[in-house]
Design a protein around this nucleic acid. Sequence first.
DNA 1: ACCTTACATGTCTAATCCTACATGTCAAGC
DNA 2: GCTTGACATGTAGGATTAGACATGTAAGGT
Lengths: 171, 171
Amino acid sequence: MSLRHAVLGLLARRPSTGYELTQTFDRSLRTSWHARHSQIYPELAKLEAADLVEVVGHGARRSKTYGVTAAGRAALRRWLVEAEPDRSQRSESGLRLFLTPLLDPGDRRAIYERDLAYVERELAALGESRARMRSDAEPQVFGPQVELGIRVNTVLRDWLQEQIEASAAEA
Amino acid sequence: MSLRHAVLGLLARRPSTGYELTQTFDRSLRTSWHARHSQIYPELAKLEAADLVEVVGHGARRSKTYGVTAAGRAALRRWLVEAEPDRSQRSESGLRLFLTPLLDPGDRRAIYERDLAYVERELAALGESRARMRSDAEPQVFGPQVELGIRVNTVLRDWLQEQIEASAAEA
DNA sequence: ACCTTACATGTCTAATCCTACATGTCAAGC
DNA sequence: GCTTGACATGTAGGATTAGACATGTAAGGT
């Protein structure tokens, strides 16, 4: 049921169209809950039928902007506060990292370098996010989340650099 | 197709029964690729039919121990080295962390404290893992992975402690 | 002997998710 | 006027995953 709450949560941040949600899933949620538009539109319809969201406006190209209802907000809070979190994850990258030691030093190093390039791009994007937030001067509730992303990716970057050096020495 | 490679990878580390794989998925892989036994047994059958794994022994309670074949090892390497990684993830915990700023300081703090307790348990388990590896004196290829787990969870712990203090100040 | 617990392997159904298909709108550039 | 690309929403069919059902084995305690 996480997709439902992901959609509900994004709409609680800000009313959006299905198209905008799809983009947010791709940009901000790809590292926590990934979803395609083919899941998002049907889910919006179900949420509307359950009166957890409602259409709050119509825009260009027959787009519909959805917002959460009071019931939706309550359901979201209940899920966050009362439901026992499922701590299991699905991350192909994590699985790859877990299995990489099985490879010989040459292959291993190539993989770590590919990952390092990716992490550097992530860090650059997160740095820009933080800069945008700072220049905004508005109160930014999601600032700490960006900060956490930066810290985690920094740890990953340093670790990858160490592994690359170790693989190079081993080869 | 990640499940297939997860199973293949675990068997490449060490020949195992379906039951042992289930436990490893639950203990070591729960943070990267979670799977139930109801997926694992059918997957083993498919892998055997494809000659990527084979039964290498029979044990008590009609258990079968599987090992990877040469073809299986080659398939695993091809996947790790040549296939483009899918960087998207599914993590309910990540989603919850992302949405927590929507709550008021009291609820927020409760959630962060629950998470902190979990992270502390994780760190304790990882610390034990590391201690076991050190006392083993054998070459431990997976040592760096444990080290990464410790570093990431340490960053998370520190971040959670900061957020708890901030929420307390705000309330 | 009996009970409980961990071991061990499977299958079935429903829910979830991905890929591809399908359709149409609007703005900008040529 | 035409083309291209981003915007925008949907559905159908197939693959993957979760949860429940089902069955049987062996060891340890009482």
